[in-house]
Structures are given as structure tokens and as C-alpha cells.
Nucleic acid binder design. Sequence first.
RNA 1: GGCGAGGUAGCUCAGCUGGUCAGAGCGCGUGAUUCAUAAUCACGAGGUCGGCGGUUCAAGCCCGCCUCUCGCUACCA
Length: 676
Amino acid sequence: MEPKRYLITAALPYANGPVHIGHLAGVYVPADIYVRYLRMRGRDVKFICGSDEHGVPITIKARNEGLTPQQVVDKYHSIIKDAFQRFGISFDIYSRTSNKTHHETASQFFRKLDDEGKFVEQTTEQYFDPEAKQFLADRYITGTCPKCGNESAYGDQCEKCGSTLNATDLINPKSTISGAKPELKETSHWYLPLDQYEPWLRQWILEEHKEWKSNVYGQCKSWIDGGLQPRAVSRDLDWGVPVPVDGATGKVLYVWFDAPIGYISATKELTPDWEKYWKDKETKLVHFIGKDNIVFHCIIFPAMLKAEGSFILPENVPANEFLNLEGDKISTSRNWAVWLHEYLDTFKGQEDVLRYVLTANAPETKDNDFTWADFQARNNNELLAVFGNFVNRALVLTHKYFEGVVPPVLALSDYDKEVMQEMSEVREKVEKPIESYRFREALQEAMNLARLGNKYLAETEPWKLWKTEPDRVATILNLSLQITAGLTIVMEPFLPFSVVKLRDMLNIKALDWTLIGQADILAVGHKINQPELLFVKIEDSVVETQLERLKNIKNENLIKNATVAEQLPNISYDDFTKMDIRVGKILQAEKVAKTKKLMKLLIDTGVDQRTVVSGIAEYFEPADIIGKQVSMLINLEPREIKGIMSQGMILMAENADGSLTFVSPQAEVKSGSVIK
RNA sequence: GGCGAGGUAGCUCAGCUGGUCAGAGCGCGUGAUUCAUAAUCACGAGGUCGGCGGUUCAAGCCCGCCUCUCGCUACCA
């Protein structure tokens, strides 16, 4: 049951930064392998991608750099697009969501759902900037983090302590646009009632797609079982696709709603036949994504498509896990990454080395680590030693003995036949894993064809036979060249650049996939060209340079982290005296059930004994702190945490790594002593 | 804390519905070899399959508890 055509999408890169090896290993390299394979099989396939250019982070970036959002996305769109192209990611189209077709497509999509009553409208309170006269996205609000005191925390997250926040949690919220103090104001938005799609999703994914990768299936199950909530599809923002409804000025489609529609608009842009790819049940739709995108591609976007009604749904969503770099998480903001455009500049002509390493070490089932030592080893010990070396041997020998002409097969030994049998099995061994998105395994099998070649030469030793049995040498080299020709086919999805070089050496054109492993690809008498090296050795110094670079980045980050928080604005003495800070003694301590960080403490404040809940459980054991004297703010408004009324706040000093230390008197002091 | 995914030879990973499942590549050791970018080929070294219980005639593969890593989520006055 061969699908009539394929529509393959790769996650839209967010245009606020360049693409790095994590993106490549997770999404683009596997997608490209799959697509190149399908094309070689002669399938009708469209490979779709583009930049995701809307959303708040881009507007922030623009503001910070003194640019317009359009300028920001123009910049990164071209860097990304160019890098992909140079790296041989063979999109049929690399579009962008800020263009006209996309705006029209997304608007139409929204309008159809709205007209058919598929949305729910709801009014909520959000922060509004009275000076700029606009609603503020969480990212546009800064204030003091209620958890760590960092005064430049964002409304959705404090980057210092890493905690996620609500804008309304911030102390002294401030608009980053005007600096004004924001006020809460009512605003209404459209919601996609995902809860209504729950039974359908349950059936569609949990029953009908049990074959999805376990990480994908598990995540979906977790979301569905957890109960789906209506999700806002619009935001108060001036950057994005305007909500196509009268009176909705100042509102745009929420980026998660507009971005996946980008796949559709890009297809539209690519071909007038786009509906065949999106609406015909005989099309197989596959989304390649990273694990961070599972919920959008498996739950939300399908629900959107289902709501719209005329679109097909993805048949599979092969999401990869994450790639680490030298043991640490890749991070754009910390510059902890190998950037594709930089790699391409530094490692000219070595595109395939990175493609190979990222495939061989792809995070298909769990997070993996990219190290430069591994990069070097895979190049030198595998690509070069196994593949490059075999090809070189076969060609050099042919030139040495037969002036570069494919010699005839004169008689086949039993061993020759054995080898031919093995050759013929390679195709299926590569095909199967590719069709099930196991590219690491497929590459391994493809490499085995080169291994077979090396073994064949070692076993037959033609260089020893030339003087005595030239006919035998002819046969051996013929077969070796046939293996080499097979390699130009089977390696093409993985190593497209090297394959072009190899074909030139063999003086042949691109060959049909089904010829892999055949022993009569090259005609006897065919003249081949002089061999060149397919891969160059990567020296230790290259690795050291890269490691040095990373080390420097680490140092820079350390320095950044070591910066001491700036002094807060002056306050009056009166302000200070409002705080009643005392020495207290911990009488009892126990961890709060079902939390990681919370400890419930009973404190003797001198004034009374009271309960305080404090986020210190990660660093202290209850038994170790009982009897300890601590500093405590006792006149802080009580607040309920996890059902416990917390009456005060223990003062803690925080180290750069986030660990905590009590601020205790040097010597035992009477509980209730005033600290001032 | 909840949920999800992982914890298999030095490294990176395969092991489908339980019974040749204890494997591959790289690294390492020994030997062979010289056509080849000191590349190749053969052989080997053995990891109590995270830990403890349990089910079974039989368990990396099933169940329970524990532990570590990653992700999502809750919590941090």
C-alpha cells in the first residue's frame, strides 16, 4: 500500500537566532535523509520548511537591538536559509511566515474556524501599558523576581533562578516598552477548545498510532490523560498575523497557531497543486520535529486540522530527543552550540562529515552527546578509514593494473559469489530502517557495504596475484568497482556531497536506487577518472581549537554569572524600619509532601511560635537544621503555600550555583532579638 | 511531588510480542598484511544487562519497590 505522494515537513526554525547542530541532528538531517531516499525511489514528495518569524521573543530581540521585528527576521531568515542550502538540506521550499501567502492562508484558516463556531471567546485580565496604550505580553514585563530577588525577571520567567512565573507574580512590574507601571485590564481572546477534541485524539493517537516512537506516544498519552484545556489562539501584540475579525485591532494570531499553518502556506507557494498534498487521503504526511514540539504537532495542530475539516492528518511524527554539546545542554543564549553557518565556514568541503556524525550519533531514542573527539574519531576511523579508504583502494588498483578501465569478469570463485550475495542484501538492510525512521541503523548498514569491500580486498589480495593470475585480478577489481558504484547510490541520502565527488571519479551519473548491490552496474570497458581523496584526516589541532573555543565561552559565561546583582534604588530609613527582622530558632522541620523544594518549619520567633514554609528542601535535611538560629522577616503578610499558611520568611544567602546558606548569628542569641 | 523517556561491554548504541539476547561500531590487546589517507583484515579481551524483591519451567525483556539522568509540570514569601 504505497502512498501516492508524500508531504514531509521539518520543524520551522524560529528566526531569532542561527541554526545549530542540535537542530540539525534532531530534525533537518534525518528529514533530509528520508526525503532524499524517497526521491531516489521515484516517489512524489514535497519537502517543506521555512522560518517561524512571529511571536514575542522576536519583538523583544528587535527592541534590544534597536531594529524592527521585520529586520530581525530578515537577518536570521537569510542566515538560516543560506546555511541550510550550503549544508545540502534539500527543501523543495524554504519559506517564511512573515510573507503574504502565509498571512492570507493563516487568516483564512482562522476565519473558517471562527465562522463555523469552532472557537470560544473569553475575557481575561492582562497587564496593559497605559502610556504605550497596549497590552503587554509576559515577556514585555519586567520586575523583581519574587523568588530570588533578581530585579530584571521577565513576566514569564526569571532567567537568573530559572523559575517560571506569572506576570502578576512580579514585584514592582514595569513595562519594558514605556517603563510605565502596567495595570490590569480586561481583554478578550479566541480559544481553541482542545478539551472537546480529547476523545477523538485519544482514539486517533492512542488507538490508531501505537506505532509512533515511544517518546512521542508517551508524551501524547501524558497530555491526553492529563486533561486538555482550551488554548488561546490570539494575543494582544502588533507583530504577527492580525486576527481577521472586525474590531480585533491590536490582536494577532498566537504564534503556535500561525506557525504550523506555515507548512500549508509554504506548500501553496510551492505548487498550485498544494491541495493534493494536504487534502488527498492518499498523501502521507510526516512531520520531523524535536521533542520540544511534540505537543504542538501531535495534539494541537492535528486538532486545528480536524476542526477545519478538509485536511489530512500526519501519519507519523518522528521526534528526536536532544543533542548535548561536550556534556552540557546546547543553549543559544549561552552561546553553547556549534552553529551551522560557522561550521560551514570553518570546515569547508566537510559538510558530509557533520552529516555523518550527526546521523551516526543521532539522539533517536535518548539525549546524546556531541563531542569534538567523537567527531574526529568518526571522521578518521570510520568515514575515512572505511569508506574513503576502500574507494581509494579500488580506484587506485584499477588505475595501476588496468589504466582506469573497468576490467571484465572472467570467472567467479565461490568467495566472489558469497560477496555478491552479501552485496545484494544491502539494499533491503538500508531501506527497512529508513522507512521506519531509524537512520542511525540505516547508515551503519550502508557503511557495511564499504566494510564488505575492504574485507573482499583483504581476502583476495589482488596485488599479490597480478603477476601470476591477471585474470583473477580483473574479476576482483570489477567486483570492487561494482561495490564502489553501489556506494554512490546507498550513500546518497546520507552523504550527498561525497557521492557527487565519487560519481565524478567513477565517471558515472546518478543511478537508480534499486541498483544497490548489483554486480553489473559498471560496464566492462568503462573508463573511470583519477581518484581523489573523499575525506581528509582531522588532526588533533583542529579538535583542540574547537575545544579551546568552547572553553572560552564557558569562561565568559562564568564571568557573566559571577556578576553581582546591581544595587537597588535607595530607600528611606522609614522603609527599612518597616521590616521586622528577628533571630528565630528552628524547632521543627519537615519536608512538604509532593513538593521538591518546600520545607515546613516551626520557628520560635521570641514573639511566638509560628509556621513558615520555605523553599530550602533541596539543600537541607530536616534533622540537620532543627535547633538552628536563623534570620527571619516576621511581619511579612502571611501567605498560603500548598495549603499551609506561611507566616514569615527565612532569610537565605544564595550562591552563584543556586545553593543556599542560612544567615545566622555568629553566636547564640536570644530568640526574638531584633536585627537592624 | 506528578507524568513521560532513559539507565545494556571504556565510549556511542542494537536487542521486536519473555526461552542461541548477552550483541554491533569505535577504542583497547595480539597476530596478519602493504593495493590504500600508518588506512585494512583476523582473532581476543568478557558487561552479575542501574539496585532489591517477585511472577514463570524460563526475564535486559513481565510486576512491585528503590536509585540516577533528561524532558514536561507543580512548588520556592
